[in-house]
Design a protein around this nucleic acid. Structure first.
Lengths: 317, 317
DNA sequence: TTGTATGCGTTATCAT
DNA sequence: ATGATAACGCATACAA
């Protein structure tokens, strides 16, 4: 079965090939009747226009680049899943690149992508990264996980998330609460999440017991150890992420320290399995991914797109 | 800076555009001197031929489809990482599709891929799946994780893996050993891994204490519970995967059942972190991915490719 | 060994 | 409202 072209369709529908092209691209200047005639043939033979011919003609590829930080991050994975779902549905291809939190790699990836004449990029924003270089390339960009000035973004309401966690702990009667997060150079996961904790401490006149490291569970473990060696009677540990919380949990389990509430962010299924009493914030990463994908598609089509702030939901069992 | 074409290169190098094309495609019929001249210009201006024009001309896309079972499987993620590394280096784009262990979805995905005129497919083989339908489509296929008749495959030596685990346990003086695996309809992870256990039991005249479920940690947990309710004095639990082992571990930890060795397969970093004494088999998934990618590239180029059997390495701390 | 001419399937421009 | 035609950038059959 040979691949059909618009010429075949044109013949079969008894029209010129430009008309077929017009129908395919939704050109309004086609008479109702002809349009339906053509559409019918297209439907019947299940015709799909050649992407490479389109790309060549339009000098634009129906491909979207995704620069995420690390393949294997469970939260990013969920987001990517959402992105793919929408993008594939809109007939876009996807190139997934790992930045590994490095600015250099990000720049490199962007060069590769630009050379490929891709239609747009979704970037999982990195801490303390200067994205100014992106403004020069006139290709649509959507940022995920962080608001970046001058860019459309899908961001999480980090402050409210930690705030609601603190509120919950307060209700539960916990007041000596420690915080384990990441370096402040990471504005959102680092600085903002911590700020909410710090503000709560100030308001409630509680001691700020905090430590900062990286995103790994090893870091969570190490910092938990530091804290529990330095402080006594801690009633809860608030973590910037579920992954960090995992490390904290391990430390607490080893020391048989029970009755200490641990909270995280991300609603990681694994944590919930290992520790049923784990408290987390569900940011609906998959939905965020779908949103990001829809945004980039709109931007490519020239529509204005508003920033999105995703509210988290407390998951307490 | 406008996009260059082979015509520009031809002008700059003082040759015809077909010569440039020949140089790009490594046509042997080009005089050494001209070839170098052209290459120099290409290098200087950093010329990259238009992929869409090539695809259109060749009626073949430099795109490879990956049908994996589930985004988010830690082991498959590592494999995909390896695949991407090699494929991107060879200038292929990639379409990642999830089969979710469903035959229907796989067939669907294959249709989508075929319509896209992709160059080849890497499939993460599924238990009990009939891949006969693939033979009709004359597009190169590489199977990962399972030997499938008539297809090039990158498979893991499952039997030897479990065998070496059993050998290790024997050395450690454990003889009452339980096994938790997956349904036998999954030939490799299910049947073969179990066979190695069963054979060991026969040889060593030990009781076969086994249960079978799915790939989830929940399943591991549930089956561990079943076993420990039914049997006494178990000294070790051999699991078909690290993920299953995770569930088993949780059960054992809850029951404060110490001094029971738990083994898995996959060398999951997370398990090693949570339980330092975890024993696992490292199949080098990333390397397997790289191998799969290299194989599909070779197949596309018309080379013969041999099946690969990946040997696991016991990781005992 | 190299250059010229043609066609791949599409969209955009220009007629009609 | 629609059809004919010219690009788009490349690979290749053919000519030189």
């Amino acid at each position: 079965m040979k691949k059909l072209t618009i010429i075949d369709i044109a013949r079969m529908a008894g029209v010129g090939k430009s008309t077929v092209s017009r129908v395919i691209n939704g050109d309004p200047g086609v008479k109702r009747a002809t349009k339906e005639k053509v559409l019918k043939v297209i439907e019947e033979v299940n015709f799909i226009p050649s992407r490479s011919a389109q790309s060549m003609r339009l000098k634009q590829n129906k491909v979207i680049g995704i620069i995420n930080t690390r393949l294997g991050s469970r939260s990013e994975n969920k987001t990517i899943k959402g992105i793919l779902e929408v993008l594939y549905k809109n007939n876009y291809d996807v190139i997934i690149l790992e930045s590994d939190f490095s600015r250099e790699k990000t720049v490199e990836h962007m060069d590769v992508l630009r050379e490929k004449n891709i239609a747009g990029v979704i970037i999982f924003a990195i801490s303390g990264m200067d994205y100014a270089f992106l403004e020069k390339m006139d290709i649509p960009v959507v940022m995920v996980a962080k608001e970046v000035e001058n860019f459309t973004s899908i961001a999480y309401d980090d402050y409210s998330a930690i705030k609601s966690v603190m509120g919950y702990l307060e209700e539960e009667g916990r007041s000596r609460i420690a915080y384990i997060g990441v370096d402040h150079r990471d504005i959102t996961t680092g600085y903002i999440r911590y700020s909410a904790y710090r503000d709560w401490c100030k308001t409630n006149k509680q001691k700020d017991i905090s430590r900062f490291g990286d995103f790994s569970y090893e870091s969570g473990y190490r910092l938990a150890k530091e804290i529990f060696e330095a402080e006594r009677d801690i009633e809860a540990v608030v973590c910037a992420t579920d992954n960090i919380a995992l490390g904290v949990r391990k430390f607490l389990t080893e020391g048989a320290m029970e009755n200490i509430v641990v909270t995280g962010i991300g609603n990681d299924k694994l944590l919930k399995f290992l520790y049923e009493d784990h408290i987390s914030i569900n940011f609906r990463y998959d939905e965020a991914g779908r949103k990001a994908a829809r945004s980039i598609v709109k931007k490519i089509q020239g529509e204005e797109v508003e920033n999105t702030l995703i509210e988290g939901e407390l998951v307490k069992l």
